[in-house]
Write a protein that binds this DNA or RNA. Structure first.
Length: 435
RNA sequence: GUGGCUGUAGCUCAAUGGCGGAGCACCUCACUGUGGAUGAGGGGGUUGUGGGUUCGAGUCCCAUCAGCCACCCCA
């Protein structure tokens, strides 16, 4: 016998889990469709060279595999494969191109809460425009989606990579040390300002520069206030000023798109790890319980250029389905899914089995989800199974019903039972389901 | 990848180094044309796995696997 075990960090999704997971992804995809996104899906396996050199230090987390002499890897996210497929099909797609994709990605991390080696993401991107309207649109989508799922308290944190670069320059940090600075300030929420200052100094940043950086990342308040304060620190840096103007435009458009002010905030400490981001970056977090970010995204204007002579500006993000799901289970959110089968057709006796199966067939042809018994059994047992399997109605066709041309329809929600004419059964069942 | 904690029935958890249990869930019956309630009965475990110490190990030791937490980093 083989021990039935699954690989660490990877989990099976049983029907109970899949109902909620499907609800989550259906809800999110519905929002994306209303914004005009189209589905574009790529393979899980890529040539290793496609993924290498795009994601930064975490490249060591790539699951690598070899088939014959082919050097392959499982995708680490869906963004890099998107860049590849866009570069190869640019002429067919028509810019700007808005895509979404639902699927697994793989990272060889040690498993922890909210972190799995196989995890599902719903990725969405707008390819081919650098307008701040596009950045604003994806942020609006994110806010709307979280609302729809019921995460009223979630907040979207927004920052800009070029503002961080400007901060590093203005503080006098060497270009090579900048990545380290981003990594440290990104931990502000977790370790606090004093620890950030300490770690900055430890990493070789001067006390003066560390103080400047800490002042900057402590900025908070309404976007206008924060932007003005940023401007006064970074005003002399040309690239940072451009980034501030860009971020201002994005924020203005987010408001125009109808997003409530309390659902997003500027967060000067937000850095995000993936090395391909070039502009605006954002993520969504929930204050309680702790779960890391529910989604993450930003603008990456140079990634497609790594696969093509011509680069294409792109902004995108990915929902973390595992985290959304785990949180919704923990917080008892989402529908209850008590009745997800329309009808269960009982089988009274061997003689009446054929007619019961015909009955089920008619209901299915009308588009209903129908279970049948797999043989005669005590009616009590059959009702019990019908209830357990989530049926709304149970149908009985017994000898008395057969001779009277009736079918008994029992509503398992209430226990009430009524007869219906055999030749009107589809309409009668549909009518019952409406109530 | 590094460090720490945990692992007993499907689930939640008991059991001083001395006979492995409870509640819930599941199955059968009371009930041969009616589920949820009630009652009676039943099935379930190599105590994650493999070694070791001991007269005796769920309990102590080592290894391993998995999960949780902290790093690292991230959805």
């Amino acid at each position: 016998m083989i021990t039935p075990r699954s690989y660490k960090g990877m989990r099976d999704h049983l029907p109970d889990a899949m109902r909620l997971r499907r609800y989550i992804t259906d809800t999110l995809i519905d929002v994306l469709r209303r914004y005009g996104f189209e589905e574009l899906s790529t393979p899980i396996v890529e040539y290793a060279e496609t993924l290498e050199g795009k994601i930064g230090e975490d490249e060591k987390l790539l699951f690598r595999l070899q088939f014959g002499s082919d050097q392959l890897a499982l995708r680490y996210d869906q963004t890099v494969p998107l860049a590849r497929v866009i570069a190869a099909n640019e002429g067919k797609l028509g810019m700007p191109f808005k895509r979404y994709a639902l699927g697994q990605s793989y990272r060889g991390e040690r498993q922890q809460r909210g972190r799995y080696r196989e995890f599902w993401q719903l990725d969405a991107d707008i390819v081919g425009v650098d307008s701040p309207v596009a950045d604003a649109e994806v942020i609006a989508i994110v806010c709307e989606s979280l609302q729809r799922l019921g995460f009223a308290g979630a907040r979207v944190l927004i920052n800009h990579r070029e503002i961080l670069s400007g901060l590093a320059r203005v503080a006098g940090v060497e270009a090579e040390a900048a990545a380290n600075v981003y990594r440290i300030i990104d931990k502000l929420d977790k370790i606090g300002l004093d620890q950030v200052r300490e770690q900055l100094v430890q990493s070789g940043v001067s006390a003066d520069a560390a103080a400047k950086i800490c002042d900057f990342i402590s900025l908070e308040g309404a976007p206008d206030t924060v932007l003005a304060a940023m401007q006064s620190t970074l005003g002399d840096d040309e690239a940072a000023s451009a980034a501030l103007a860009n971020l201002r435009a994005i924020i203005e458009n987010v408001a125009l798109l109808g997003v409530a002010p309390e659902s997003y905030t500027l967060s000067p400490a937000l850095a995000r790890g993936l090395s391909y981001y070039t502009g605006c970056v954002f993520e969504a977090v929930l204050a309680e319980p702790p779960m890391g970010s529910l989604l993450g995204g930003g603008r990456y204007d140079n990634l497609i250029g790594m696969f093509s002579k011509r680069s294409l500006p792109t902004v995108g993000f990915a929902f973390g389905i595992e985290r959304l799901y785990d949180l919704m289970v923990e917080l008892k959110m989402g529908p209850t899914f008590e009745r997800f089968i329309d009808a269960y057709v009982t089988i009274f006796s061997p003689e009446l089995e054929p007619e019961s199966l015909r009955l089920a067939s008619e209901l299915r042809a009308a588009g209903l989800s129908v279970l049948t018994a797999y043989g005669p059994a005590r009616l009590g047992t059959q009702f019990s199974e019908a209830d357990r399997k989530g049926a709304t109605l149970a149908l009985v066709y017994g000898p008395d019903d057969a001779s009277a041309n009736l079918v008994q329809i029992k509503d398992l929600r209430t226990g009430a039972q009524e007869p219906a004419a055999r030749d009107q059964i589809v309409a009668a069942v549909q009518q019952k389901l409406q109530t």
